[in-house]
Design a protein around this nucleic acid. Structure first.
Lengths: 241, 241
DNA sequence: TGCTCTTTTTGGTATGACTAAAAACAAAAT
DNA sequence: ATTTTGTTTTTAGTCATACCAAAAAGAGCA
């Protein structure tokens, strides 16, 4: 199985747009085109690179798909801040792919367990007072809507999201939002009952307690138990996927 | 001929190509267009959806950027297997973004430490005999080129790569390849000396030993120590980035 | 200064044409 | 009959032009 052939997109014969893409990319990375600034209009690009508007449009399209610019329809594309949102969009594509593979849903969920395992361990050892109070607030908010499944779902996501904030690394919030988007779509429409809410909230409390007592092993155990239980609740929905 | 009854875009902000993209996406996800099959030619798309070739091309371009199809220049685009390669391309984009942020390199490296921490812990608890022998082979290959820095770098990457294989989840090899691509570009051209190779190899051995003795805490400690040391070796190269 | 109203610019789309490469086909040679 | 070679058709890539509608910019007025 050859897994070596092409990197991002270009393998062999360069498209005419590739040169334009490279030049504009450098302008962006070098800061010549600062964040938020509109990129040259398509007609200016035509003029500058001596290519047709077709190619100019394709170049803009590629820049957009790479996340370097923000192109709303009918607006001048602007240089995008390479931040969480960009990463989010990219991760969203990954999630989409995972969901379309056989077993992809399970693999994606396992990945989530893997990530959050590391997060709760890190939380147990490194969480600051602020982190703790954020977690506590999220937990309490979660406990206050055991009877409102929609709000419970939101606060559930928020509680897990608080874990992703702890390392202070913007990669993690981006990952969380990708997972959340997926969950919001696939999970949100699932039948949820108050007793399940209570069970999940209890699990959240156990995780929080373990973090509070600075016990990474316990936190990990509770987290894994919680997520495996959550998976079991919906596994049959994704049978064979 | 003036076209009067066209549907430019349905009030919202949707491009005309979006409908085509949606329809083709469904054909792909439903299996109507199986993996490896060529998608309809641009002119067939024009015919089918009653749109101009411009729009058809844009739709194909979007599908390509989403990774649903594999579009080499001048070849008929084929439905892409939504697998590691797709994920790789996506992750590559994420890495690109991280590298262009202030502090992004460090954050990316921290993410790597986070991931590999989880991996060695999992290895220490779950590794099978096969996993162990793979690790051992990678370690030995690594130890045999202490004096050949290029080959040492390759086997170094391979050793870490063996860790990413252990969970049996294709997400991890994809992540590893993304990191490796980055390392191959940024790291590979760094001055490397035999004494550093030895130090890194010793660290690899320590990690392997901890995995062998089924001690996740020790494995984590050795891994973190190893990677932090590796970071220190090159941190000044990325000062302020 | 603040507001409307026009003018210009710009992105989105349509159409037609041309080129080089790939694919499909046919014919010839073994 | 099978392989090789040559020819035709199809197709992606590109270019040029044109039109429309929306956005941005400017002009005019209050």
């Amino acid at each position: 199985m050859t897994i070596q052939d092409d990197t991002p997109n270009d393998a062999n014969g360069n498209r005419a747009a590739d040169n334009v893409v490279r030049a504009l990319s450098e302008s962006i990375y070098s800061g010549e085109l600062p964040v938020g600034a509109p990129i040259p209009s398509e007609r200016e690009i035509v003029e500058k690179f001596q290519i047709s508007r077709t190619v100019a449009r394709e170049a803009v399209s590629i820049l957009s798909s790479k996340g370097l610019i923000d192109a709303r329809p009918r607006y001048r594309p602007v240089v995008r801040q390479p931040d969480l949102d960009a990463a989010l969009g990219v991760m969203g594509g990954l999630v989409q792919h995972m969901l379309s593979r056989p077993g992809g849903v399970k693999q994606l969920f396992d990945t989530r367990i893997f990530v959050e395992t590391g997060l709760v361990r890190a939380a147990a050892t490194d969480a600051t007072k602020d982190d703790i109070s954020n977690l506590r607030a999220a937990l309490e908010a979660n406990g206050e809507c055991l009877d409102d499944s929609n709000r419970f779902f939101e606060t559930d996501v928020a509680f897990h999201g608080a874990l992703y904030m702890i390392p202070g690394n913007p990669v993690f919030p981006a990952i969380h939002r990708s997972f959340s988007d997926w969950l919001g779509g696939q999970w949100g429409m699932m039948p949820r009952k108050p007793d399940r809410n209570r069970r999940n909230h209890d699990a959240h409390q156990a995780i929080f307690k373990a973090i509070l007592s600075r016990d990474p092993d316990e936190a990990e155990a509770e987290l894994v138990s919680h997520l495996q239980d959550a998976w079991a609740q919906v596994a049959d929905t994704f049978d064979g996927v």
